[in-house]
Amino acid sequence: MTKRRSPWLLAVTALVYIFLYAPIIVLIVFAFNSSRTNVVFEGVVNQGDCGPFYWFCQLGRNRELVAAARNTLVVAATSTVASTVIGTMAALALQRYKFPGKAYSEISLYIPIVIPEIVMGVGLLVLYSALFGFINTTFGLNGDNRLSLGLGTVILSHIAFSVPFVALVVRARLQGFDKAVEEAAMDLYANEWTTFWRVTLPIIFPGVMSGALLAFTLSLDDFITTFFTTGPGGTTLPIYVYGLLRRVTTPELNALATIWIVIVFVVLMLSQLAGRRSEAH
């Protein structure tokens, strides 16, 4: 017997989808608008060498924006690598060892996930200011040598909020991990290092990979923490876009957002695929 679905249910589902995706679709459509003010859609732009992709090409000519995009990628890449390494190690340690204060460190590791991001941002800002102030005065640093907010602090902050997510994802993967396979490897003449690379990591790799992809997307679109901890030379795309919005919105912005959506979408799909593979094992 096939179940008849209620038309109401279908209507509600359709509404939810429209509500979720209409803004995104509108945003993408307006990236091809011929009107510069971008209030009303006045037809598909067809200008210069790029035709309908005029605004996308304009983006490439915007130096500030290219710099912000580069910063974003640098921050995302470095913080992903660092937080994946640290988060995986934390997950392994929590899974494996008993040590005093373990329960506390476990909870404290997940605190950044639950506390409001603005608290995290302000906290980091206060920490950096105090720390840098102290170091600068103690070592008499001045001029260009002075430690100050910038790309470096943004990267550190991103690592800080990504580690718990990576640790959480990797730990989930470790739940079903049979410690005996590591012992088996050691029994078969592999030392601790070789055992990790040849046995442990390959088995938990899908988990590590989805943790890394999660960290990457988190870093890519982070605004709040970045806003508080950035400084000269540390402007990322979200910060740059925020700055643009306060002035005027042009289809350039929509083009930028479109590219962004495509990137995030691809990364998320990869993360999903990695997750599937991990379940299949």
Binding site: M186, L188, Y189, A190, P202, H281
Partner: peptide, 20 residues
């Protein structure tokens, strides 16, 4: 002496074959 330097090998209770 760590396990990997001992001249013995083990057959584990749940086999512990490398799944990958």
């Amino acid at each position: 002496t760590p396990p990997y330097k001992r001249p013995v090998n083990t057959v584990f209770q749940n086999y512990a074959l490398f799944p990958h």
